[in-house]
Design a protein around this nucleic acid. Structure first.
Length: 480
DNA sequence: ATGTGC
């Protein structure tokens, strides 16, 4: 190929369809690889995402490449849509910026035993029931009021603990990444401020692009996979997109500060302070990974409790419940074993705004999904489509794919250009019921502030990172 | 994303 696309300062070489390479230069230890169409390459004025791909390539212990998914955009230190793996035994680092402030932000999809047309007469009533039951917006209390002892159990047990307390059924856990609890959580590494912030927010959506949507399956792309996952055409589903709230945010803040001070002792220099990192096996590295796992479990319990709220609303208004399809994070660092140059190596895989996508046959897949691969959940922008995807054989970037549309316009700019009331009226006119938390919040999340989700998913599939299983469209949105 | 900002 060899066509060169000139970015602001970063040289990007087109290698093939949906694949660009940033050649290794200067202190880069590995090249950058960007999976995207030309149209999806970050080019918005001031977007430093490709420079961030370059910066990540300088991290100690990074192997193979600094990867970017098709929804890549500017983030804190690492780009959102970035994937980087470091060799733990070779001084490979862990960096909180490679996970993000919303630790274990993720998505779960639940399926209702009902078709779209049968629900429509009761949609308004259902949305009102959800409106009453789903805490959302900045701050604001969660559905579960707990004390410190119970919070510690949440940090260790995640969704598993929530189910043990009666908030869900055992089958839910089989459909959660890691069975609902990431091992290795260390509540002792979660600071007092993080605990304070986390106490009152278990079971709450938060704000920004987080949502709970009632959706309907619009297109089935892969009938066999959809069937194995428990999804069919016209089916009503619920998608929940949220994370670890103030607790995860505070953990990130605290550990970035610690690492920023400690890095010099390990002889680490980074091109951007936001890339603060230490060896994953060091004291500070293990402390962060323990706190990060605790936040991940908090996020999983959070989604489990919001599922219960949604189930209660469905039982109340429609007389039936919801089955969990899957729950998966898109902001996490995990210690995983991969083959590098024919050798099994323990890697610290950072996925920030990127989703794990295990291929068919992977041993970590639950019963019934081994033949089709891991479900991948891609939340759309308010009022637009969302996707159910599956992992594929040979997927690059350590079995990872995209996570969503990717913002192209700042919150501020969106709020200036869009009127929240008019946007709600527009969505309602298109048949999408809206229950928001604030007018400004709605305006900031207007579809025009994001990339085209259909294009992002097409590029992800085209790049061989995943395949499409089903496309879902919103019937009603509960917005933080 | 976030008790939204050094």
């Amino acid at each position: 190929m060899g066509a060169t696309v000139t970015g602001a300062t970063v040289e990007v070489v087109e290698e093939g369809p949906f694949r660009f390479r940033i050649p290794r230069r200067g202190s880069m230890r590995v090249p950058g690889v960007v999976f995207a169409s030309r149209a999806l390459l970050p080019e918005a004025a001031g977007d430093q995402a490709l420079q961030q791909v370059v910066n990540v390539a300088t991290l100690p212990g990074i192997v193979e490449a600094s990867y970017a998914m098709p929804d890549v955009h500017w983030g804190y230190g690492f780009p959102i849509g970035g994937v980087a793996a470091t060799d733990v035994a070779d001084g490979g680092v862990v960096s909180p910026g490679g996970v993000g402030f919303d630790i274990s932000c993720g998505v779960r999809l639940l399926a209702a035993p009902c078709e779209r047309d049968a629900l429509l007469p009761r949609l308004g009533q259902l949305m009102d029931a959800l409106d009453r039951r789903v805490p959302r917006g900045p701050g604001r209390g969660g559905v579960w009021q707990i004390g410190r002892t119970e919070l510690e159990k949440v940090l260790v047990g995640g969704a598993r603990h929530a189910v043990e307390r009666g908030h869900g059924v055992a089958r839910d856990l089989a459909r959660c990444e890691d069975g609902g609890a990431l091992p290795g959580a260390d509540p002792g590494q979660v600071g007092v401020r993080a605990v304070e912030r986390g106490l009152g927010q278990v079971g709450s959506l938060g704000s920004g692009n987080h949502f709970l949507e009632v959706q309907a399956v619009d297109t089935v792309h892969d009938r066999a996979a959809a069937s194995a996952m428990g999804v069919r055409e016209r089916q009503v589903c619920v998608m929940i997109h949220c994370g670890s709230r103030g607790l995860g945010h505070q953990i990130c803040t605290d550990h970035v500060r610690t690492m920023d001070r400690a890095a010099a002792r390990y002889g680490i220099e980074v091109p951007d302070r936001q890339l603060a990192c230490v060896p994953a096996g060091s004291g500070e590295g293990r402390a962060y990974l323990g706190a990060m796992a605790a936040a991940a479990n908090y996020a999983r319990a959070n989604r489990q409790l919001l599922s219960e709220a949604a189930r209660d609303a469905f039982e109340e208004t429609a007389g039936y419940g919801l089955d969990l399809v899957y729950d998966i994070s898109h902001n996490l660092a995990k210690i995983e074993t991969h083959h590098v140059a024919g050798r099994a190596v323990r890697l610290c895989v950072h996925r920030k705004g990127a989703t794990r996508a295990l291929p068919p046959g992977h041993p970590d897949l639950p019963d019934g999904l081994a033949a089709v691969g891991q479900p991948v959940l891609i939340p759309g922008t308010m009022g637009t489509a969302s996707y159910l995807l599956a992992g594929v054989e040979g997927g690059g970037a350590w079995h990872s794919t995209c996570h969503g549309a990717g913002r192209v316009r700042s919150r501020h700019s969106a709020a200036r250009e869009v009127d929240g009331r008019a946007l709600r009226a527009e969505l309602e006119a298109r048949g999408v019921a809206v229950r928001g938390a604030s007018w400004r919040g709605l305006a900031e999340e207007a579809p025009r502030a994001y990339k085209d989700i259909d294009a992002v998913v097409r590029a992800s599939e085209g790049a061989g990172l995943c395949r499409r299983v089903a496309r879902l469209v919103p019937l009603g949105v509960v917005k933080g």
